[in-house]
Design a protein around this nucleic acid. Structure first.
Lengths: 347, 347
DNA sequence: ATGAAAGCGCTAACAC
DNA sequence: GTGTTAGCGCTTTCAT
């Protein structure tokens, strides 16, 4: 039994020659859409010899001819943030099933890099883009839109309603968090917000405010601190600021898990315990949040599903660019753990 | 000032027409290797108009002609394991600087999937492969080798000495771990080993054994448990087995951090404290290991550097396939935290 | 130093 | 139904 030599390129023409038929016929057989145009016997023989010869279509040639690459660019702010890998897997799973391949790249939260990367991807003729780096008003997104390249935003969205996006619903998540906290007796609830030029930062802040209002708790600007990025360091800095500024509060709602971890550090340094003195909540439920000291109460977002849904939406838009741009909002789920407890008696 | 229309494809021929010269001349100018063959004035004019017109070479066409894709496949067992994202960033950084693009894919630790993915990547004409899924005896790797496709192994290596690899030196890491533990008075040291068909599992087990021997501690088979995968669940199962089997020990050396986290869970359930009753160590120092309860003593490996070095090695081999296949071993570093403490008096 | 021509592997428009 | 032809955008002989 002879092993097919995978490394020896066998072309469509080789198959044609072997079968004794014109290359275009082979092409027709191999393309599901045009297979009907060829007689069953020939089609059979072609498929057969193609397999026997170990024929592998050359996507480069195909791409040159058809202006398609069967390649999707995935632009992420930071792959080392554990929210993203599960999304990537969701994306890859859906894409692969459809015959597409993902090209993943990090921008390190740098818009300049993002521009460069999108440029590279476009020069590589990606058929579409999944972008996780969008700012609320993002010229890069606008440009893609205008140039007509299929695009889906992931995790973050943009003000411009013309661009489709898939993300978790921050209003729902924050509402659950605040409700949980209020149920524990908290009234003085601080919020460490994310960057306000990002939809996530903005929506979560609004979510907290609305939920507070719904519980009849007045808005206190002194209890809101704005993080400049979604990082542990910023979380620590913001919490320091809250404490050192003399604010009184019994709970801190953080716009994501990394900020919450920063709070842990800050509280530690200031000799305050969690949840004894202060309850803390995160957002995203990234990996290992259940192993922290204390385990973090947070909001789990369906990361894998966000990925699959984004890929699905993109494929749909590529097929039919006229598809209306939906903004998909998936429901998150509150995960109660040890970082939240009864409010300390007002002292 | 007119903005160049990025979405309108301008070809080499457009540039040629504009300059009033033959396309081949433009090609020569654009290719650094052949630029010398054209007169400086023409070269200048070509470069100029190319920029002015916003010409972007089409890599697909280039690839078809030259059989290169400027694309590298990166095959990983599991992107949600935090060891890998930093490596990916290292890889991407180096590759991007050299004009290459990475295609990343997960195998979910499934060799069948790995085969399929490598197949897809090869059909996409990747110029090289960085593989992180290699088993000690891996037919997929052998096949790539035989087919002459440039390949570098990352994190794990293979028995076959012909294939280059980049990984941290497990002997060094485990030696440091054992030395640390022995210094704390531990003599009965258990080991939760990784799969023995992986170089990492094997090398770390050997590292532990050698280090123990070096300290005059006899090998006790009853203190070694073999995990079937590098997961939290396996760590818990193995630790359960150790405890329920009645083994006596004061420390557990785990083959990676996830196994160690599993130990935490198991110890918890059995009412044993760490580090009070049992010291635990991990391996890799993935993100957040410093935030666990207790913070995990572990071995930090230079993940980013492993990535850059692997990419560098691959590029080198692609340039000159005759380059001898080095097995690069980078030095890890012991990070002492709260999960290790003095050995409990033998009871 | 430059132009002409062929062709990478494939598809699509048009003949027959 | 099948063959013919042209060409995607580029590089690379081969002439001149």
């Amino acid at each position: 039994m002879m092993k097919t030599m995978a490394h020896m390129r066998v072309t469509l023409r080789d198959v044609a020659r072997q079968v004794g038929v014109h290359p275009s016929t082979v092409s027709r057989v191999l393309n599901p859409a045009t297979r009907g145009m060829v007689s069953p016997e020939i089609a059979e023989r072609v498929t057969e010899t193609a397999r026997a010869l170990g024929y592998r279509p050359n996507p480069i040639a195909y791409g040159l001819r058809t202006n398609r690459s069967f390649t999707i660019g995935v632009v992420l702010p930071d792959l080392t943030n554990p929210v993203f890998p599960p999304m990537v897997r969701g994306i890859e799973a859906t894409l692969e099933a459809a015959g597409y391949t993902a090209i993943i790249a990090n921008t390190d939260n740098d818009p300049t890099r993002a521009g460069k990367i999108i440029d590279i991807m476009r020069s590589r003729q990606v058929d579409g883009l999944i972008v996780g780096t969008a700012r609320l008003d993002d010229p890069l997104v606008t440009e893609c839109l205008e140039d007509g390249i299929p695009l889906v935003l992931i995790n973050r969205r943009v003000e411009d309603g013309r661009v489709p996006s898939v993300a978790a619903d921050s209003a729902v998540g924050m509402s659950a968090v605040v409700h949980h906290l209020v149920g524990l007796g908290h009234r003085r609830i601080a919020h460490i917000a994310g960057p306000q030029y990002l939809s996530t930062g903005r929506a979560r802040l609004r979510g907290v405010r609305n939920a507070l209002a719904a519980h009849g708790i007045a808005d206190d600007p002194g209890l809101i601190v704005y993080g400049e990025s979604f990082t542990v360091e910023e979380g620590r800095r913001c919490c320091d600021q809250l404490i050192d500024g003399g604010a009184t509060f019994t709970a801190i709602v953080c716009a994501n898990d990394l900020l919450a971890i920063g709070c842990y550090e800050s509280l530690d340094r200031h000799g305050r315990t969690c949840p004894g003195d202060v309850s803390v909540t995160g957002y995203n439920d990234i990996r290992f949040m259940d192993k922290l000291r204390p385990p973090l109460t947070t909001v789990r977002i369906p990361t894998h599903e966000i990925g699959t849904e984004a890929a699905r939406t993109l494929l749909e838009r590529m097929r039919d660019p006229a598809t209306p741009a939906r903004e998909v909002r998936l429901d998150p789920e509150l995960i109660v753990r040890g970082s939240t407890g009864p409010a300390k008696a007002a002292g």
